[in-house]
Design a protein around this nucleic acid. Structure first.
Lengths: 332, 332
DNA sequence: CCTTTTCCTGCAACCGGTTGCAGGACCCCG
DNA sequence: CGGGGTCCTGCAACCGGTTGCAGGAAAAGG
């Protein structure tokens, strides 16, 4: 079997506690003793058993990252940034996928609870009170969701939605549609409110269609309903939905951006690869991943340091590409 | 703090070992005792501490899944299938990303080693001997890589590559190019060999360009070199590279499939969304994920049961879409 | 030279479970 | 009524580390 601390102790002729301290970087052990122990450990190939260590210290140096759907291109940049940043901070990030299933989400959190020091929940679908309760048992950081008393990293999608409305209104569109996201989505609610306000300010009409699955298929399915509203500009919950919409429109002979303008949200590769290239609200996903890890580590390491909850809001911007244009039949 | 087994024992008026056995589903405890214990545990909100359990049993019921780049659309379906299937088998899958960095890959395996019962390595870039050595310390299952003595799930990309060559030759292309993948990629080596053989069989010329980063950018960069070969049909290492190539060609005024035919590998969403829709070799990724988990659990649970290494080969197929056509200037 | 500090290391309990062993209660049978 | 099984539960050691406490040795101070 693998080396244990006792094997090292024996080989070095010291007590296990000395070996332990040599590794915990304790200044409590004489310099030359520590160096000797570490040298012996190294050539015995000893590595401390993190599981055992976790049992006494209560700290695993692992973080959980829960997302609703890894296949959504919104997540990978966030995940990669979180993992890379955690690594330099000496932590490990475990990613799990809930498949958009609330029950799985809760169960996953419970399962993870004992194996990680804290969890990052990205766009969770759980109800506020459930999240709040769970937050009492384990350090949490939310991304794209705000719950009283919990730290969160928010992306200013409200501002992004407003920019989208203004962009379309500026092009001359007078009737817009908003294709919202799934039930329980904080982002969707934010968009809806901000878009509504911006539309009022700009004096344009805005119809809201929701809820919808946050996927390409959701977009395809929603396409006919959008056409029925008669809107000439559409803002979708995310890039995937936007792409689905475009596909659905295409099947009905409606061309983008000639007949209809479409805006997505997230700025994913999918939107960049799509033809026409998608106009979209860019979300700072990598920054969000890093910030979430930073916040979580901070919370974990100052445990009991009171309610050090922090909310960070990251800016969004509008990236104009080829899926938006002036309306085909300007009013008047 | 959270409930421990001792709290439950005390509340139930029994010894901790009895509580432990009540949970381990031991038939060693009287039926009514067990029911009482479980009831009390339930309303105390007790959940066994997996970390502690792992310490004595040596089993964590966690599996590691290491991929080179989560952002590559090839992985998500595999990851989702693996996680979903593992869940029904009572296991948890932790995903980690190596960022295409061999050093990170090895370090990750070492870090994970103690926290999981086994690891699935998807398209690893590590050298054979390193993998073999690591395989001695921890149960492994490889995907898209074959190393003597280790279980593996292979996708028959060789057959897929041959189909691609035959498809192009059948359309009338007489000069093909293969844009290979990164150094250390088993898949790339397989493709190369099989495509070479098929080209010879078909009596067409095949130029090989490698290595290349397995990304869209890698394709963009490789585009000029491909044009220089004068080939009229191109097979790319994967869909991402194919899409990059198409983008690179487009920048030079070369249209697909009018001027050049392009075939990808993997059948990812990216290829389906791309315009023109990508002709590609479909890989059974979801099945591979499930099979890998199955194999790994089998290996783990029959530990010491001898070298029960199994190799599973999954079939691939060619999906013809819009990025391939008859050559613009047929020879003759 | 003796007392006080400081520095280092060993001892042993503990984290939260699991499990081999032993013994008590009870039943069956002769 | 005694001997031999079953069945169940408690005891205690153990998994691989960590850490408060105590004590010995060396260094500092008087």
């Amino acid at each position: 079997m693998a080396m244990t601390i006792r094997d090292v102790a024996q080989a070095a002729g010291v007590h296990v506690s000395t070996v332990s301290r040599a590794f915990s970087a304790s200044h409590l052990v004489k310099r030359e003793t520590r160096e000797r122990v570490l040298a012996i450990a190294a050539d015995l190939g000893y590595r401390p058993n993190e599981t055992a260590r976790a049992l006494t210290t209560g700290r695993t140096r692992n973080l959980g990252l829960i997302v609703s759907d890894i296949a959504n291109p919104f997540y990978p940049p966030l995940i990669k940034a979180a993992q890379a940043y955690a690594r330099v901070r000496g932590y490990q990030v475990f990613v799990a996928d809930t498949d958009e299933d609330v029950a799985v989400e809760e169960e996953l959190i419970r399962t993870l609870a004992r194996q990680v020091d804290g969890v990052i929940l990205v766009s969770p679908r759980l109800a506020n009170d459930v999240i709040g309760r769970l937050g009492g048992e384990l350090p949490f950081v939310l991304v794209n969701r705000s719950v009283a008393g919990l730290s969160a990293v928010l992306m200013d999608v409200a501002h992004g939605a407003a920019l989208a409305v203004e962009h379309l209104a500026g092009l001359g569109h007078e009737h817009l549609a908003l294709v919202g996201g799934p039930r329980g989505s904080w982002t969707s609610a934010q968009m809806r409110r901000a878009a509504g306000r911006a539309a009022a300010d700009q004096g344009v009409r805005l119809d809201v269609l929701a809820p919808n699955p946050p996927t390409e298929h959701g977009g395809i399915v929603a396409a006919p309903a959008v056409l029925e509203t008669g809107a000439t500009g559409v803002i979708a919950y995310n890039d995937l939905v936007a792409i689905g919409l475009i596909e659905g429109f295409d099947d009905r002979g409606v061309r983008i951006p000639r007949d209809l303008s479409v805006i997505g949200v997230d700025d994913t590769v999918a939107g960049r690869l799509n033809r026409p290239r998608l106009t979209t609200v860019a979300m700072p996903t990598a920054a969000a991943g890093r910030t979430a890890v930073d916040l979580l580590i901070q919370t974990v390491e100052t445990s009991g340091g009171g309610p050090a909850t922090a909310q960070t809001v990251l800016a969004t911007s509008l990236v104009v590409r080829d899926s938006t244009a002036t309306p085909a039949h300007p009013a008047g």
